[in-house]
Structure formats: structure tokens, C-alpha cells
Design a protein around this nucleic acid. Sequence first.
DNA 1: CCATCTCGCGCAAACGTTATCGCACCCGCT
DNA 2: AGCGGGTGCGATAACGTTTGCGCGAGATGG
Lengths: 338, 338
Amino acid sequence: MSQRPRPVRLEDVARESGVHVSTVSRVLNESDSLTVRPETRERIVETARRLHYRPNAIARGLKLSSTGALGLLVPSLRNPVYAAVIRGAFDRAWEEGFVVLLAEDTDGGRGQRAYESLVGEGRIDGLLIASARPGNPILERFAEGIVPCVFVNRRHIGSGCNASMREEDAGAAAADHLIGLGHTRLGQVAGPLVLDTAHRRMQGFAAAVAAAGLDPPRVEAAAFDEPGGSRAMTQLLRGRDRPTGVFVSNISQAVGAFAGARRLGRAIPADVSVIGCDDDPLADYLDAPLTTIRMPLAELGAAAVDALIAQLRGEPPKDVVVDTPPQLVLRASTGVPI
Amino acid sequence: MSQRPRPVRLEDVARESGVHVSTVSRVLNESDSLTVRPETRERIVETARRLHYRPNAIARGLKLSSTGALGLLVPSLRNPVYAAVIRGAFDRAWEEGFVVLLAEDTDGGRGQRAYESLVGEGRIDGLLIASARPGNPILERFAEGIVPCVFVNRRHIGSGCNASMREEDAGAAAADHLIGLGHTRLGQVAGPLVLDTAHRRMQGFAAAVAAAGLDPPRVEAAAFDEPGGSRAMTQLLRGRDRPTGVFVSNISQAVGAFAGARRLGRAIPADVSVIGCDDDPLADYLDAPLTTIRMPLAELGAAAVDALIAQLRGEPPKDVVVDTPPQLVLRASTGVPI
DNA sequence: CCATCTCGCGCAAACGTTATCGCACCCGCT
DNA sequence: AGCGGGTGCGATAACGTTTGCGCGAGATGG
């Protein structure tokens, strides 16, 4: 029954170095009024280190009415794409002295509950929302304006605080690659078109196809998961005039799309070229290895954190777009049409 | 420049209902000394609801010296298996009135930093560690005993507070399935054997093989990711006496193993049967659809939260094993040997 | 030698809660 | 009428931190 060690408080450091707590606080915060003798400062810093003092975030949060924590709502933890965004956000937040609290905003109210706990109970200073979608109750709560928010990846039009990437360029890069290979009948497995991200990706793709003077691509919208990709690909590959080159919007969709093509007996890339969006280690291990458009996901996470912290500092919210261009990662799933 | 609405405090509710804050606090906490007139209670509850009062978790945490938050450290957010564990943990925690703060404990110090922020700064009451592995610095910090901990999935031998599943039975179920199909030369793509989980899975597999009177399986240990699975499978399938049935320990490894077999020109299941561990939607979309052993992952997450909360209530720590048995999910990647 | 100024630090109040104590008041009993 | 004991609630002190204010002491100037 060993006791848990009582955490060391400001008062312990103060007593040990023979000064008042307020002095310790000021010294350790390196604050403005540095009117402290160097030797005293030295002594305080030294004992603080010796005792392994760490300020209590709860007490600090109460006094400062700011917790040093940011929330991050992602739509699904099963989607490896978000792992990259999350890492980018965590790392940048840490650099800025913040901790980020991650929650999954799936159907079933997990996101709502997280919102209640994190925002409603004052546990965070700001919220990163990567799970925006029309009808998501979180959007109504956003309007209440309890905490500053930034929408990540999926924009919330009119919010004035979106962090996004060059989705149109991603679609265009995919189209250009397929067109460059000689494909003339193109198709797209898009995401749910109510999602801003999916919509822009589609528009960029369609615009590039139009610019090349080709017939508009056939588009099948589908959920961002394996079943969605499978069903959409099956639709695209059925019937006459089927596309020889298909742009798929997400790695999970790509896995499903591969399965769909396989079931119809179509080989990749011999019968149909497939290019994916969002690069992921998994792409190397598909059959065939998936050519993708790499998106700056970690940078997106970092940029979103920056934008949120700017708001916390009192700056007016603004939309930001990560300017790193989408980049083609060539593997084996695309080739010249037969 | 709309102002953020100032959150409603206990005092607002008190003023509005004409009583003192302490009374409001007692009423809303339904506490012991219910010596309050029903009409007063009614009035307080009513105005609290009307004003949408939510207690401030920070102030509450400071006073009670308990935050109502649990930490959860997972080794990788790219592994879909953990999504299931996380959901189980989140949901159970919510039922018990706790919020869980999720962080990734990858190489590169993310876990360390999370530990510092969450435990060191007193942001959480207890910690769930799913990222235990020999040499992980978190294990030394555990020994300091600042907060109660529970090790999830990967046990920390000797800690006395592990939550795990019937890994040996998983290995045995996989072996039994392959043996039942008539396979006599078995192999295993194991996880890193320094990990308790991987080791037990391997032992269960080996024991079942021995019990059937077969030669001991060839085991290739590998990282729990696609490259690991690919390399290990390649090793297993090279040389004479290669196995006709292989047990792979994880869905990511399975993807890699499929790729490895493909590169050697071996068909699944015609040339080699593959059975995976941990069921996941992805399994349906592999070529061939992957037969797996389903593990009770969400229940594991829930059980770990239960064990941690028990410790917070002052009960002595104890090891728990989720008793739901591993279950065969038959798909197309296993068949009778040629 | 006293007034003034600056330096170096202590004092105490707050942040929003909860918990312990205690004080009125009302009821019933003698 | 006086007394005792509940009943119903208010005052208050914390929890660990930050911060405006102020006070003593030494330095400086007249």
C-alpha cells in the first residue's frame, strides 16, 4: 500500500528556497517584472529543478481561465489519413506549449459527448474540427461561440476560420497524370459531395478534364471507406464507355475500389488505371502498388493549430490554405490505356 | 467582433434562484445532506437547466483534486485495431462520468511529451497504457507512481495492473483452424516477441500445433506493420519445407504478407492459407478476403477503464483478462492444402 | 540629515468549486 | 414560557496558481 507521492507545489519550492510563493511564480514564469536579484533567481530555479517542480495545469487554468489545451475532433480513427493530420497538430501544439485532446466524432454521439466534456466543462481553450459535415450537431454548437474554432480539411463555409489544402489542384494533378498517359475516358470515385473537401477535389478533376477537351468524367460519390470505394468502382466499370482511368479520393476507398475491380475481372493497371489521393504506407502494399497524390497532411494539422492559437491571442479568425502543392507519387497502378 | 458568451457559473444560478452558491452546489451534486426543501431544490434545478449551467471542470478539479479525465496512450494511430479499443474505452469512460484524453506514444517522444503534460501537470486522474514495450521510458515513469495506471493489451509483467485478452486462445484457435483444414506445415508471422501480447499469441499457436503432434511452426517475428508482414512472409515462403498455412498477427501485417506472397508468385489460399488476428472491415477487401480471429477489442478497452476507475476508488490494482473467447471469422484466405 | 526613488520581495485577493461548520428558525414537549 | 432538537440554509475556508499593490531597505539627491 505505497502512498502516491504528493506532487510538489509552488509552496514547497518557496519554503525550500526561503522566499514567498509569489516570487517563485514570477521567477519561473520569467515574467515582466524581473525585479529579482540574480542570486535569488538562481536559488529558486535550482530548487525547482531539484524538486522536479511542474506547475499544476488545473490550478493554473483556473487562475488564468485558459487551460493550455486544444481539442481535436476527427471523423474516424480508422482512417489512417487522420493519423498524419493528428501528428502534425500534436507536434506544432507542443512547440507552442499546448496539449491537444483528441476525440472521435463518429455517429452515435461520441463527438457530441466529447464536445460537452471538453467545451461545455471548460476543459479546452479552442477546438479543431475535422469532422464538419452538413447536419453535424457540432456545427450548431459552433455558432454558440463558446470557444474559438478552426475547421480542418473539411471547411465550414461562412465560418471564416477554415484550414484547408489545395484540393482543386489535387484533382487537377490526378487528371493531368491520367491524361498524360493517354487516357480519354475518365472516371472518379468521389467522396460524399456534401463535404466541401470532396466537392473541391471533384471540381478540380472535372476542370482539368474539360481543359484537355475531353468528355466530362463520370463521377460516383461514395463514403470514404472500403465499401464505398467498392460500390462506386463497380458502378463505374459497368456498362459501355467505361472509364480507363479512375481517380479515387482516399486510401480506404482505393482498397475497396481494387476489390470492386477485381470482382469484375478487371486488372489494374492493364484494364483500368487507378490513382488515389492522400499518400499512405499502405499504398505500397496494394496490388498493384497505388499511384497517389500526396497531400501535405501534417502541415495541415500544424497550420490549423497555428490559426487557432492566433485566435486565442486575440487576432481575428481567418481562412488559411496550406500552400504546399499536391504531389504525384508514381507507383504501379497507373499506365497507358490499352 | 461578437463577444464570447461568458459561461454561466454557480453564482449565476444562485443569484437567479435566490439562494447561496453552496446550496446550489449541494443540490446539483445530489449530495448526502439532502436537508433542502423540495420547492427550493425544484427551483434551483429548474434555473440551472434554464441557464444551461455546466460545472467548470477546472475549478471542480482543483477543489476535488481529481479531474474526471483519464489518459490513454496508444502506440500508433495508424493501426485500425486501436480504433476499436479506443471506442470501447471512450464509451465506458463516458458511462462512468469520465472523459478520456488520447495520445499517441510513437518513437520521437510524442508519448513522453504527452506523459509530461497529462500526468506531470496533473491533468488526469489515471492512465491507460497500450504502448508498453521494454525500453519505453514511460515504464520508468510508471514506477514513480504519480497516477494509477492500467496496461492495456500489452502487459507490463509485475505491474499488477494489466488488462489483456486470451491471446493464447487466439493462437490456438488459428492453429486449430489450419490443422482442421489438413495443414501440417505451419508458420507464423509473429509480432515483436519482446511484446508480451505477441509472445503469448505465439505460444498459444505453438502449443496447439504441438498438441496436434505436428512439427513446431516456423516463426518469423516482425513489426506490426505492412513492411514487417511482407518481409516475414517472404522469409517463411522461401526455401524447402515452407509452410502451407500461416498465422499472421495483425491486419497491417496481413496486408504486407499478402504482398510478400504475391511477389513470390504464391496464390492465397491456393498455395498458402493465411489467417489473421484482429478482425477489421479491411479484411473483407483483401485478395482473398482474410479469415481472421476476432478479438474482443472494445471490451478490452472497457475493461481497462473499469480496472482503472476501480483503482481510483481506492481498490487495490489487479490484473484482468477479458473472458470473451477469440472467435474464428471465416472468409476466403484459408482452404485445404494442395 | 531628511525626502525621494528604486529595488527586491511579501501580502492578499482572486479564479469557480466543494465541504465543514454553524446559525437561525420552527416545532413540540414539559 | 423555556428548552431541546431538528431542518434548512448561509458563511467560509480551502484547492494551487497568478498578479496588482504595497512596504521596507538601501541608494541617491538636495
